[in-house]
């Protein structure tokens, strides 16, 4: 699913944000990415989601060699990925329902199919009573669940979550992780960056530790 070979990333200066990174993630794996602030977690995600190019090395995601990806192909490549962020990134001018529906609209799905899928996932994340509300009137945990539903609705192969629990209390974090695990069973690959070591204790999963751009540990915990 994801294959890195000797990936380097520098932003101009001497400092390497990522240094000689090599590892492989298989389809359906659940991977935590940990490391202190500035370790390069977000940078790695930027490379994987084709927001930036690596300085050197090979990166293959879902069969695409990102070095050869043309700008016009980037939107189509990204449709295979679902993104989840600490700050949710929802559209304030659209309702919960419309936010969740958006990836399907972009894919050009028919109205009735969209409706079916939205209703299904909105129930899974427990937001059926908030469908017509706007994001600004939701709690942090509810907004995060909208973001998760939006990331999952078009059945991407890969979910990238950068500090998804950053704004959630422990109980909400746990319920969010349970949602992740449930979807992970359907064969979706998960890549979750976090500072919250408590999350690692819930389930057996692979943990990659980064420090100053170097992979320092790769273990199952």
């Amino acid at each position: 699913m994801i294959e890195l070979k000797h990936i380097y990333k520098t932003y101009g200066g001497e400092l390497h944000s990522l240094r000689d990174l090599s590892f492989t993630v298989e389809q359906g794996e659940f991977v935590f990415l940990v490391g202190p602030s500035g370790a390069g977690k977000t940078t790695l995600f930027k490379l994987i989601s084709a927001y930036e190019k690596s300085s050197s090395g090979d990166l293959v995601v879902s069969g695409h060699n990102l070095k050869e990806l043309r700008v016009g192909q980037v939107p189509f490549f990204r449709r295979q990925i679902g993104f989840i962020f600490q700050n949710y990134k929802l559209l304030k001018t659209k309702s919960v329902y419309e936010n969740i529906e958006l990836p399907l609209v972009i894919l050009g799905e028919k109205e009735n199919i969209r409706k079916e899928k939205v209703l299904e996932i909105i129930e899974k994340v427990g937001l059926q009573d908030h469908a017509d509300q706007f994001p600004d009137f939701l709690s942090g945990g509810e907004q995060q669940r909208v973001a998760i539903a939006r990331a999952l609705i078009h059945q991407p192969k890969l979910i990238i979550a950068d500090e998804p629990t950053g704004n959630l209390d422990p109980a909400l974090s746990d319920s969010m992780m349970n949602l992740f695990y449930e979807f992970s069973k359907t064969g979706i690959t998960f890549l979750v960056a976090t500072h919250d070591h408590r999350l690692l204790q819930n389930k057996k999963a692979r943990v990659l530790s980064l420090d100053k751009g170097v992979l320092v540990e790769d273990r199952i915990a």
Binding site: P75, F76, R78, F83, L90, L91, K92, L102, P103, R150
Partner: peptide
Amino acid sequence: KAELEVYTLIGATRWF
């Protein structure tokens, strides 16, 4: 801009 960013993030083409 925030809105535009979300669109590019979930794979909207430029023409969309």
